[in-house]
Amino acid sequence: MKLHYYPGCTLKEKTTNLDESTYAAMKMLGYELVEPENWTCCGAEFPLNEEKIVGLAAPARILRQVEMEGGDKVVTACAFCFNVLKQTHIALLNDPLKQKRINAYLKDDIRIDPVTKERTTDFPEYRGDVQVLHLLEFIQKEIGYEKVRSLIRRDLGNLRAAPYYGCRLLRPKGETGIDEPDDPSIFEEFLESIGIGVVDFPFKQECCGSYLSVSLPDAASEVSYRILRSAKLNGADMVVLSCPLCYYNLDRRQDRIREKFLEFTGMPVLFFTQILAWALGVEAEILGLDQHFFDPRPVLGITDKAEVAS
């Protein structure tokens, strides 16, 4: 089955492990992912300012492209992109004036083919009919946990994962989130369906420190540390998440965290699609597990060459 998938820039350039594991896992689940043609960056932050409406143009353009290609939904794996696309979708849906203003921008789009130099103009209006789903939602609503369960190839029953939602899957509270901001369960249900033990920990919806890892690195280390520590205290073998920025702060910065908090011994941090693909029997090499700061392979029992249990 074909499915529109928006990867976003980070997944193509930096956290390619999230992108590649998404492709691999979805293939196992019977989906061929289709990226909207000529997609651009979503903008990374939804404009918080009522007057910076132009910030909606990029995400709206992506949604329009999906619509032009006959799609009625688009799936993302990156929590940040999901948040921007979903908020844009809602903003345009709830505010016809905004939609009109954005369409006025988009109408003047010019696309020049890099090879043939052919110009395309006169793009249609975006009607607002594209549903934005995070992959966790798509699995819950459209694939179904039963189906996932039936396709599991590896037994992860002896492992315990802490689902880390962070901010962008749950907030702002209201239409954006994929679950209740303070009592979510969709990530837990997902993990249960792939047969891994689930750890309930009180920091699952706390912020990882976001871009403060650049401006106030020590402060960011502290909030990241508290999340990892809470997961560990509650018995997790790994933290599972969906956001490249959270991954950066919680995994790639573990050296900085260790400098500040000496007792911290490290914790594997995985993308939900990596653990999904692994459970579905995808080979380890495809999952980019070697890109992590804290090597997750030992905890997954990958020593040399992975064995596919059947």
Binding site: E180, P181, D182, D183, D200, P202
Partner: peptide
């Protein structure tokens, strides 16, 4: 109490 997830509900 279950309405207050941020307080752990009845956990």
């Amino acid at each position: 109490l279950n309405h207050l997830g941020e307080f752990g509900g009845e956990k």
